[in-house]
């Protein structure tokens, strides 16, 4: 009673002094109010965890000793990483996987798209079939390829021996280089369709006349592709590249299943290393520091491809 009376009194006093609208003064403005739920959700699921993980990368935080998160050690985790050979090998291997896989997928995807585009009948069903590998969970792809590359019972060795190409059991998932190739194969098999679909979309959106003009202008089929078709397709290829570079930079599942980074860390890539450091060794602070460096890699590749994309689009976009 007394409180309410005070409020009323205050409002009246203010109203008298500073004209109308005093009750609104301590309310949030409508735009802020309406945006607030979005901000709260974003903060809860993105900003806070991000800041927390960034902070923890400056601590010796171990999951087994929760109170270690309060020990601030500055850049010591990062300093350690920069001299950590194992980390840089995993980093390098990830970049290598990314480069080789992207290039292979690009070439194969382009080939697939060109072939499918040529098909006069059953193009829709071909497009659907082409997308099959994308419909499988990467974990299942990992299991499937792990089986296929198994040195004893695997399909690949079986086939090679049956064809008489070798009489040994090739240690696909044991030898470092071979295991890398096996992982690469699984990666390429599962995701070439991304390139194929984007490039096919480009082919289908592309006007016919410039190609015909090029033929009349004296181009061989190769020259027509090189000078006319390819510049049209570049923006599409770069979109696929951006998506796939992010994909591979965070590659984890296929490798985890097929080799788990092993044997003896011969196929360790960034995220298998980070997951091992964070969960198996329980060194979450260090793992988070690694993750932040790994994210830099993704950002660099994304920026690179986006710049290429913008350049390629500026050249052809205005026409469509």
């Amino acid at each position: 009673m007394n409180e309410a009376g005070t409020v009323v009194e205050t409002a009246e006093t203010r109203g008298g002094n500073a004209s109308t609208g005093t009750l609104k003064a301590w309310r949030l403005p409508a735009p802020v109010l309406l945006l607030l739920p979005a901000f709260v959700v974003l903060a809860a699921v993105v900003v806070v965890p991000l800041l927390l993980s960034l902070y923890s990368s400056f601590t010796p935080f171990r999951l087994t000793r929760p109170d270690s998160i309060w020990t601030f050690i500055g850049f010591r985790n990062y300093e350690r990483l920069f001299t950590d050979w194992e980390f840089w090998v995993a980093f390098g291997r990830t970049v290598l996987l990314l480069t080789v896989a992207l290039n292979l997928e690009m070439v194969l995807g382009l080939g697939l798209a060109l072939l499918v585009e040529k098909a006069t009948r059953g193009q829709r069903i071909l497009r659907t079939i082409m997308m099959f590998p994308m419909m499988f969970s990467p974990v299942l792809v990992g299991f499937q390829f792990k089986f296929m590359f198994n040195d004893n019972v695997g399909l690949i060795n079986n086939a090679l021996q049956a064809l008489g190409l070798t009489d040994r059991a090739i240690p696909w998932l044991i030898d470092g280089t071979l295991a890398f190739i096996a992982i690469l194969t699984a990666e390429v098999w599962s995701s070439t369709a991304v390139f194929a679909i984007f490039i096919l979309a480009g082919l289908m959106a592309m006007p016919r006349e410039p190609v015909e003009a090029a033929r009349v202008d004296g181009c061989t089929p190769w020259q027509t592709f090189r000078y006319v078709t390819w510049p049209y397709l570049m923006p599409f290829a770069f979109i696929a590249m951006t998506i796939r570079s992010l994909d591979i930079a965070r590659a984890y599942d296929i490798v985890k299943i097929m080799t788990d980074g092993g044997p003896a860390k011969r196929t360790e890539i960034l995220w298998t290393l980070i997951a091992r450091t964070g969960y198996s060794d329980a060194r979450m602070g260090l793992a988070n520091a690694m993750a932040y460096v790994a994210i830099l890699l993704s950002i660099v590749f994304t920026a690179l491809f986006f710049r290429q994309l913008a350049k390629a689009r500026a050249q052809v976009a205005a026409e469509w």
Partner: peptide
């Protein structure tokens, strides 16, 4: 003969310029 061997040139309705 393919178009390139016919020594002709053609102007298209949609101009068909190379945009890049």
């Amino acid at each position: 003969l393919p178009p390139r061997s016919r020594n002709i040139s053609m102007v298209f309705q949609s101009y068909a310029l190379y945009p890049h």
